[in-house]
Design a protein around this nucleic acid. Sequence first.
DNA 1: CATGAAGTAAAGTGAGTTTATCAACAATAA
DNA 2: TTATTGTTGATAAACTCACTTTACTTCATG
Lengths: 144, 144
Amino acid sequence: MKLSKKSEYGLRALLELTLAHEKTTLQRHDIADRQHIPVEFLEQILLTLKRAGLISSRRGVNGGYVLIKQPHEITLGQVIRVLDGPLAPIGCVSKTAYQKCSDCPYANTPRCPVQQVMGTVRDAIAGILDHYSLADFAAGQPTG
Amino acid sequence: MKLSKKSEYGLRALLELTLAHEKTTLQRHDIADRQHIPVEFLEQILLTLKRAGLISSRRGVNGGYVLIKQPHEITLGQVIRVLDGPLAPIGCVSKTAYQKCSDCPYANTPRCPVQQVMGTVRDAIAGILDHYSLADFAAGQPTG
DNA sequence: CATGAAGTAAAGTGAGTTTATCAACAATAA
DNA sequence: TTATTGTTGATAAACTCACTTTACTTCATG
């Protein structure tokens, strides 16, 4: 049930990029300094976010990173899925990365008790995270 | 955001104990066989649950494990906290095991964006899991 | 076109966690 | 007493996390 450092840093990095959005580009050390993230680790994260099409970068003098979409178009759910994998607590209730459980005696049964609860939990988590955008995030918007 | 095998097995083991509740005791291999759990790993889990005061055991011929409380008195939240630790996605929003974040630039600020969302997520998860009992679980009760 | 600032990419690392397995021991009932 | 069952602790393979290192590639500017 835990958020990795990777996702936490990723979220905080995107927060800075959101604040800078359409004003300026940010270099890795800008982000690292402001959010106290180890630069080398941050690079990996930014690279992953770039491959996922959330940000773009320019090299050379005056290079840096920028958001590639509008802040309200990117949800925290998307970000966390990219960096940490599915939101679902267990593969058999994931909607974006379903995996049937091999060893469960109820596998493929319509009424697996574990699936029943965990499905609800997944929906609750995704319900929040998939409706909370970077714009909300940067604004410190209360959820709901 | 993931449930460990330990918790999954623990939940499935308690499911069997709930079904057997006030009828019979179950031995580790009964549980292991029915739920396809490696026996030795299961022992560890049962021991933890015992130390947590959820189940009790008797040794010797005709020994085994039994639930020590009524199924409706034990929630899935309790079980998962015992086996996997806090439900909160991040330490700084945990109610049962709060830990302040050291490196976050917003630490101790009333308005940390990460805390804001993750607090909501925590409440959603705990809201489900702390109100879902073993009795509901065994009945395949829909959540809500 | 050379230089150096900046991003890209992959591999490596140490610590810790997960998921078990094994063996020796302790208690109990028949 | 003996077979059955739970208790405990040690060990370990596999994997993950959180970085670090190293070796590029690319590009703006002088």
